[in-house]
Nucleic acid binder design. Structure first.
Lengths: 167, 167
DNA sequence: TGCAAATAGTTGCATTTGAAACGATTATAG
DNA sequence: CTATAATCGTTTCAAATGCAACTATTTGCA
């Protein structure tokens, strides 16, 4: 009602969880990304695709989008670059000509193997600021906050698999 | 070396902290943003500016950018809309004609007072998934991970203030 | 004082991003 | 079997974003 600030309850942005998460996430991601963007000419999107293809072989573009929680358009465009640079090989599924079958090429593996330790080191650097108990708490908290809102399909098949090769 | 996947150690993206933070942050922010974007035609950037002006009166555009950790260009453009819609009043500092003096207008306060409870409710919904101990741990963890990388100027003056009015 | 450097805010431009639409293919209902 | 709907990946186009350049003003130093 009143125009004087005393009568309002302003949000304390710096304590507001969504805001803090956003800050932390951006800062952490960018710190790591700067490294491999310069040294390997990889965007965050592209690196995530490499990472998920290193873990799960022969995914389709849609599956990559699901597992990385990225837009299918972003995935399509990133794949165009990755395939063009020869880091990812793309075939088409014999039984369903709509689906692509994506794999890391030898060059893709080399880039992955160079970037992965770098990314993991960054993560370790972060986590060393926390006590062992806090690290465990963080993992549990992320589980609790992360599960439930995520697309249910994501929960079903998180194991590596060797799907039928394109015939 | 080898081309077979057995000889590599793929990153487990779904356990990788920067990735998980990114997912969680995006999901949380978007969930809240959808609400007030539709109902009040406010972008995240614009809402953050309203929030920080509700908390700290008569900031300059640069100070808003600092406190929201956003780009000064983004702030400038968001302010153009907010001032245009009459949610924020902009004067110029008497002693320094470069600086703007930004305040929430009566309309701006009304929008803030409508959005703030909505945002806080979303935060509460999130936090109810956690135990009391976990909530405390999360706050501590965010403090530890957040401090240190942040611009040091940010640490000095986080208390509300009543700066000298434009003369 | 006078002039170079610094600061506040805006604008221009090129890149990135996302939503809807699209063509091609496959699944499903009748 | 046919037609309708659903799926996969790409394209298109408009909006958001970020960087550098720019104007106007102020600061600092010789």
């Amino acid at each position: 009602m009143s125009r004087t600030r005393a009568n309002h309850v302003p949000i304390e942005l710096e304590r507001f969880l969504p805001y803090r998460l956003s800050l932390l996430s951006n800062r952490v991601s960018q710190a790591i990304a700067r490294d491999y963007e310069r040294r390997f000419d990889l965007s965050v999107t592209e690196w995530r695709i490499l990472a998920v293809l290193a873990r799960f072989d022969a995914l389709s573009a849609r599956e990559v989008a699901e597992r990385t929680a990225m837009d299918k358009v972003a995935v399509s465009r990133a794949l165009m670059r990755l395939v063009g640079r020869g880091l990812v090989s793309r075939r088409w599924h014999g039984g369903d000509k709509r689906r692509s079958v994506l794999r890391l090429s030898a060059r893709g593996w080399r880039v992955h193997d160079a970037v992965a330790p770098l990314a993991l080191q960054h993560e370790r650097d972060l986590l060393t600021r926390l006590s062992v108990a806090e690290r465990a708490a963080l993992a549990r908290i992320l589980d609790k906050l992360g599960a439930g809102t995520f697309p249910p399909s994501e929960r079903v098949a998180l194991r590596p698999r060797s799907p039928c090769a394109p015939r």
